[in-house]
Design a protein around this nucleic acid. Structure first.
Lengths: 223, 223
DNA sequence: AGAATAATATGAGATATCTCATGTTTTGAG
DNA sequence: CTCAAAACATGAGATATCTCATATTATTCT
């Protein structure tokens, strides 16, 4: 992890302002942090000291269960907050956050700004929207995971993540995200190939029948 | 559904103020609604016109999937908001909300108060906390549902809902909530009885071995 | 380059959970 | 009180998903 200093910090701030998110000046004690791929932005179980706002990059939220299973709860992208749960709640089990690409965030120290943040309608309004989307998404994932087999959820995931007709997510990551065993994921993927929805090409899968996948994914959506 | 009027409304407002939740006067256009058990406070798919604040009673959030399965996403209790998603998001699939006991809510009309609500730090701060808890809870339920079999989740649910050592939830409701089939729920319940964790007594189940259930439920929790 | 580690693959048997079928009991509306 | 609907109950067979064991590549580190 690198904390931007001096000129590097100054120029970054100049080119990437988040002043519009607050109704008070926040730059004085704000830091800029850069994380490398696979680096942990927050360690599971350890309360962070900052509210982060992701400027650039991608990350993943993980939680480890007592039985050793790991859940990839969600992905984090640019313009998302990290650490907002700890800002708001004194008691909270902190999830682990791992960068999946180089990630640059603004880091706003709690001890300097908490009171002002919690009193700033502009900031709170955006955070509220962010949380409402997060809650909705979680509720959707939750109910879908119980109501539909992997076949449907995987089809949806493939369509969401495929780039130019090519699906190439790491199986291990997908298992944690969709909450199924590696074995079963491969099994369903093989079925998709057998049915010619996908065609395996080395480590990638090429989408051959969009409409079939859409059909499978479609039943997840209400309306 | 009954909308309190005149003296009934006045006296209710007098005894149950929520003025402390806002930094501006809200009573002018606020209504008081009373719903009977099983009545729908919000119909699935239909945007409500009010932000509700539950004063008294209990309700359930439901969503119906295309395959006909119904998920009971969560329970709502006193001091919870309803309709906050619609207040914040212009596009949102509205879930159904059904009263499970007589429920009295304050109903704040969007068209009168939306701008002021979205600009009120006091209100937003509380709503933000409410949503953060909701999102956290959903994330927990989601990851648990994928990481643990019914046995563990049911043990947790029994401990949470049992009253004086007696568990007496309706099976049908529990199936929707835990996302399993009726058949399977009964099967695991029977196992619990076979192992003498529970003892069936008519339609109720008496907890016989707290520690065994605690142990099963315990593995859900991190730390 | 070589060794260690992570990711991919596949088989086979176990189990958690579902579907369907059917019957009984309870509850609520008229 | 009566009837229909809802909830409870149970059996049996299907299937979605898991665990474990074992190989085979890729990647990363030194």
């Amino acid at each position: 992890m690198e904390v931007y200093k001096g000129e590097k910090k100054r120029s970054f701030l100049e080119n990437h302002s988040i002043a519009h998110l607050f109704s008070f000046p926040i730059e004085a004690f704000m830091e800029v942090h850069e994380y490398q791929r696979d680096e942990w932005i927050i360690n599971e179980g350890m309360r962070p000291d900052f509210l982060f706002y992701v400027m650039e990059g991608k990350a993943k939220i993980y939680v480890t269960h007592q039985n050793g299973k790991v859940s990839l709860i969600n992905f984090i992208n640019a313009n998302d907050y990290i650490g907002e749960m700890e800002l708001l709640n004194d008691v909270y089990y902190t999830k682990g956050i791992q960068a999946s690409t180089k990630t640059i965030c603004f880091a706003i120290p709690f001890h300097r700004y908490r009171p002002q943040l919690l009193d700033d309608a502009k900031f709170l309004r955006e955070l509220t929207k962010f949380l409402s989307v997060k809650a909705t998404l979680m509720a959707a994932k939750y109910s879908q995971s119980l109501a539909f087999p992997l076949e449907n959820r995987l089809a949806d995931f493939i369509l969401q993540t495929a780039d130019e007709g090519i699906y190439k997510e790491k199986h291990v990551t997908v298992c944690d995200y969709l909450g199924v065993s590696y074995r079963h994921l491969l099994h369903v993927l093989t079925q998709f190939c057998d049915k010619n929805y996908l065609q395996k090409d080395g480590r990638n899968y090429q989408i051959k029948q969009y409409h079939s996948l859409c059909e499978l994914a479609g039943v997840l959506k209400n309306k």
